[in-house]
Each structure stands twice: as C-alpha cells, then as structure tokens.
Amino acid sequence: MGLPLPAGERDRSRSDQGEGLHGRGRTPEQLLTRSRELRTHPTEAEARLWERLRGARLNGLRFRRQVPLGSYIVDFLCPAAKLVVELDGSQHVDQQAYDARRTSFLEGEGYRVLRVWNNDVLARPDAVLEAILAAVSPLPGPARLSLSPQGRGR
C-alpha cells in the first residue's frame, strides 16, 4: 500500500489498466461504441460548437466531445476545469427528470454542468462561448474585486 496521492493527482496505474475516468472499472464497450458513433454523427449544433472549441481554440482550454462519464455520455468535457457542457434540443423539455438525475450524478463527481440550448449555439455562438468562459472562471471573491481608479479607498 502506497502513500495517498497529493490533491489533484490520480493513480496512473489505474488508467494503464484500462479503467474509466473514475477508476471504477472499465468503461463498457457499448458505451465506448456509442460515444464513437455520436462523434461521427454530430448534430448541427454540436458540430458548430466543436469547431469553436477544438484544438484549444477557446482561451487555450482543451475540450473533448462525447465522453463517457459513469453510465452517461457528456457532449463536451473540459477536464482541467471539470466542466461539462451539455447541448439541449427540444427533446429535453420532455426528459427533465432524466436530465436532473444526470446533472446530480455529474455534480456529485465534482463537475460543473452548463446546459445550453441548441438554438443558442446556432443563433448566438459568441454568447455561448462567453457563458463557457464564465463557467470556467473562478468566482470573484472579496479579495479579487478591482476598484475603479476613482475609488481607491479614498
């Protein structure tokens, strides 16, 4: 038995054995096959957003698409920021309970989940990118507030 890993480090020997992102066993072949299919046949909104995210085009952030997490496949994942971006079409109006369970699972695993409507990706892509950047930015705390030049404590 070895020493515990420092915070943020993961046991590389687990991933060498082909285990999933959380070291809880292999990702089922069926889930991997489905994620490959989804990458091969994206929706129009997925393809457009991926064109803006791929290759670290958004402020150097690296995203992956159609990634298995647990028993789910997430649309876009930024591992470094622990951010999941889910694109929702009209079918999501009828599956709110499923989406809530999915979001709860992902948040329980330490991910932030940003849900974006397909229509917004297609009609307002820059606003979607701004929302993604806001989601990965640390929340401002009292020590991070900047004062205007006129308000320097005087």
Rank of each mutant, 00 (worst) to 15 (best):
P149W: 01
A45F: 02
V136N: 12
G141C: 06
L53C: 06
L87V: 11
E37V: 01
G151I: 00
Q30P: 00
Y98I: 14
Y98Q: 15
R52D: 00
W117Q: 14
H41L: 13
R57A: 10
G20A: 06
N59L: 10
D16V: 02
T40F: 03
V121H: 04
P138C: 01
S90V: 11
G8K: 11
R52A: 14
E9W: 15
G89H: 07
R57P: 04
S15H: 10
G55E: 14
L5Q: 03
V121C: 08
E44W: 06
A123Q: 15
T33C: 02
L31G: 01
P42F: 10
L87Q: 08
G55K: 12
S146Q: 06
E9V: 14
R52E: 04
G18A: 07
L49E: 07
E130I: 00
Q96A: 15
V136Y: 11
S148E: 07
R52N: 03
A134N: 04
L53I: 08
L129I: 07
F63P: 12
G108Q: 06
P149A: 12
L122E: 14
D75I: 10
R54Y: 04
V136W: 13
G8V: 09
S146H: 01
Y72G: 06
E107T: 09
A56W: 08
R154E: 08
L145E: 09
Y72M: 07
P142D: 10
L38W: 09
A131W: 01
N119V: 06
G153T: 04
L58F: 13
V84W: 03
L145C: 03
R144L: 05
R152G: 10
R144H: 02
P4M: 03
R102W: 11
T27E: 07
R36L: 11
R24T: 14
N59P: 00
E29A: 13
G25D: 05
R152F: 00
R48C: 02
V121D: 05
T103H: 05
Q66A: 11
L3N: 13
D88C: 02
L77Q: 06
C78M: 04
P79G: 07
V85M: 06
G20H: 02
P42V: 07
Q96Y: 02
M1H: 11
L69M: 11
A143V: 08
P125N: 08
W117S: 01
L122S: 14
A131P: 00
E19N: 00
V85N: 02
L49V: 10
P6C: 03
V116W: 05
R62W: 06
E19M: 09
K82A: 14
P125F: 12
G25E: 00
D94C: 01
A81E: 15
P6T: 09
R112L: 12
L5R: 13
A7Y: 02
P79C: 08
F63R: 13
G25L: 01
Q96F: 05
L133S: 14
A143W: 06
E44V: 15
G20T: 02
V84Q: 02
C78S: 13
R101Q: 14
L87M: 07
R36Q: 13
G23P: 07
G23I: 12
S15V: 12
L38N: 10
A80Y: 04
G55Q: 14
L31H: 04
L147T: 02
